[in-house]
Computed example of a mutant assay.
Amino acid sequence: MQHPLATKKHVELKKVNQEPNLYGTFISVLMVGAFICMAWFGAYYLFLTR
């Protein structure tokens, strides 16, 4: 029979090794990047037209 603490530690190590789902973070970074690019191109457009 295994020691109860050893089993609990094994379960905790399994949880630590799993990577979180970063799909939402990726989409958020793409949206922020698109906003920054649009702001730069908008400023460049204003510079060209004046």
Rank of each mutant, 00 (worst) to 15 (best):
P20Y: 08
M31S: 10
N21W: 05
I27P: 00
V29F: 04
G42Y: 07
L46S: 14
F47V: 11
K14V: 15
K9R: 00
V29Q: 02
Y44E: 13
W40E: 05
M38H: 07
M38W: 08
H3S: 03
R50T: 07
N17L: 15
L46M: 15
F47T: 14
F47D: 13
Q2H: 02
A34I: 04
L30G: 13
Q18H: 10
A6N: 01
P4H: 00
A43S: 08
F47P: 02
L13T: 08
V32S: 07
F35C: 08
T7E: 03
M1T: 09
I36A: 11
L22S: 10
V32E: 04
Y23R: 02
V32C: 07
L30K: 02
V16W: 07
Q2D: 00
K14F: 12
N17H: 06
V11M: 04
N17C: 13
W40V: 12
N21H: 09
K8D: 02
M31F: 06
G42R: 14
Y44H: 11
V11W: 05
V16C: 08
V16Y: 04
K14L: 15
E19H: 07
M38V: 09
T7V: 15
V29A: 13
A34Q: 02
K9P: 00
H10G: 05
K14H: 09
M38T: 08
A43I: 10
L22T: 14
N21Y: 12
I36N: 06
W40H: 10
T25Q: 07
N17Y: 08
P4S: 01
K8Y: 07
M38N: 03
M31P: 01
M1Y: 05
I36K: 08
A43C: 06
W40N: 06
N17G: 11
F47S: 12
Y23N: 04
Q2P: 02
E12R: 04
L5A: 07
H10P: 00
V11S: 01
N17A: 13
W40P: 02
N21P: 03
L13W: 06
H10M: 09
Y45P: 03
F26H: 05
